[in-house]
Computed example of a mutant assay.
Amino acid sequence: MTIAHVNYKVAIEAAGSPKISWLVCAHHSNLKLKVALQSCLDQTFTDFELIVVANGVSASKVVASVAEWYGSDSRVKIFSTPICHLTFSLSLGVHFAKGEFIARMDADDIAYSTRLEKQYQFFINHPDSTVLGSAFDLIDENGLVQKTIFPLTGDEQIRNALIYKNPICHPTAMIRKQALIEAGGYLGGLQAEDYDLWLRLSANPNNRFANLKDVCIGYRITGGEARGSRLSYSSQGSSQFRHFLMGYGSKWLIASFITFIKIMRLSVSNFLGRQAK
Score class of each variant (00 low, 15 high):
222 T>L: 13
232 S>K: 12
244 F>Y: 15
233 Y>T: 04
236 Q>D: 03
244 F>V: 06
242 R>E: 13
245 L>M: 15
219 Y>W: 14
228 G>I: 06
247 G>Y: 04
224 G>T: 09
232 S>V: 10
238 S>H: 09
226 A>K: 03
240 Q>M: 15
227 R>T: 05
235 S>A: 15
241 F>Y: 14
238 S>N: 12
248 Y>M: 12
224 G>F: 05
245 L>H: 11
240 Q>S: 11
236 Q>N: 07
240 Q>W: 01
230 R>M: 15
246 M>A: 15
230 R>Q: 11
238 S>D: 10
222 T>C: 04
239 S>W: 00
246 M>S: 15
241 F>L: 12
222 T>N: 07
220 R>E: 01
242 R>H: 08
241 F>Q: 09
247 G>T: 05
237 G>P: 01
220 R>V: 01
224 G>M: 07
224 G>R: 09
217 I>N: 00
232 S>P: 00
231 L>C: 08
228 G>K: 11
218 G>M: 00
232 S>N: 13
243 H>K: 15
236 Q>H: 07
235 S>R: 02
228 G>C: 06
228 G>L: 12
223 G>K: 14
246 M>I: 08
234 S>F: 10
234 S>M: 09
226 A>Y: 01
223 G>T: 10
222 T>A: 07
248 Y>N: 15
222 T>H: 07
217 I>T: 01
241 F>R: 12
239 S>T: 11
223 G>A: 13
219 Y>M: 03
247 G>M: 08
248 Y>T: 06
235 S>G: 13
225 E>A: 08
237 G>A: 14
236 Q>S: 09
240 Q>H: 03
228 G>V: 09
239 S>H: 02
233 Y>M: 08
225 E>V: 04
225 E>R: 08
247 G>K: 09
242 R>K: 14
231 L>V: 13
239 S>P: 01
242 R>N: 10
248 Y>A: 13
